[in-house]
């Protein structure tokens, strides 16, 4: 017990604290740097978004995505952990890249879910995915138009249309194996809500926290362990 506590404290010192500091600084810096291209447009071309229309656009875009600013970090947090959340929300592509890579890293190393080890290993998997991601988008930016020619049209179409569904299915299969009794609920809840045309942010919340609530009940009833 004593050893466990010392570890806790050390973990806090060498992991949690620096992770929060680095996370806050990089996220706030990234927020500010997001507007840099606009400064270029103003300085060099003398063009500025008109204030009224800029505010209108802000309202429009926030009404479409605003709920996700809150819902996504909360829903993904139990999986990504602290550092994983900072990285994933800076680098994006969370569902198709960060979550699968975090899960696979944990699967391959063989750590127990929800532990501190799992958090660190998952974070390492996410870091690996960011490196490849940055290489990919930089290549696309520099030579993409030229390189796209090497993909036959049907291969390019397949990647465009089916990568996300295939990877979503595969990750679901991977975790459904872990807790088969939760899987039907995880599909039934969002499908029902989608049928009734509920807003997407509500569907995400209900799917994640509904499944967690059911797992809590099943755990207490010793149906799953």
């Amino acid at each position: 017990m004593a050893a466990e506590q010392i570890n806790e404290q050390k973990y806090h010192e060498v992991w949690t604290k620096p992770v929060i500091r680095m996370g806050m600084i990089t996220m706030l810096l990234a927020s500010a740097l997001s507007f840099l291209p606009l400064i270029y447009l103003y300085m060099v071309h003398g063009v500025l978004p008109p204030f009224a229309q800029a505010m209108t656009a802000w309202v429009l875009v926030a009404s479409v995505f605003g709920a996700f600013y809150v819902v996504e970090p909360i829903s993904y947090y139990p999986i990504l952990g602290l550092a994983g959340t900072y990285i994933s929300f800076l680098s994006g592509n969370i569902s198709n890249l960060r979550l699968p890579c975090s899960a696979m890293a944990q699967e391959v190393v063989g750590v127990e879910e929800g532990t501190k080890q799992a958090e660190i290993i998952g974070t390492m998997g996410i870091i690996g995915s960011v490196v490849i991601n940055l290489v990919g988008v930089t290549l696309a930016a520099l030579v993409g138009t030229w390189l796209i020619g090497i993909f036959p049209q049907f291969v390019a179409d397949a990647f465009r249309q089916y990568t996300a569904p295939a990877i979503f299915g595969a990750v679901f299969g991977q975790f459904a194996m872990r807790q088969p009794k939760l899987a039907p609920f995880a599909l039934a809840i969002p499908m029902t809500l989608l049928y009734f045309k509920m807003p997407i942010w509500l569907v995400i919340l209900a799917a994640v926290f509904g499944t967690i609530a059911i797992s809590r009940v099943f755990y207490k009833m010793k149906i799953i362990h």
Binding site: V171, F172, A186
Partner: peptide, 9 residues
């Protein structure tokens, strides 16, 4: 695990 199944569900 439940959160993961929920998200991917």
């Amino acid at each position: 695990v439940a959160a993961m199944i929920g998200v991917f569900g």
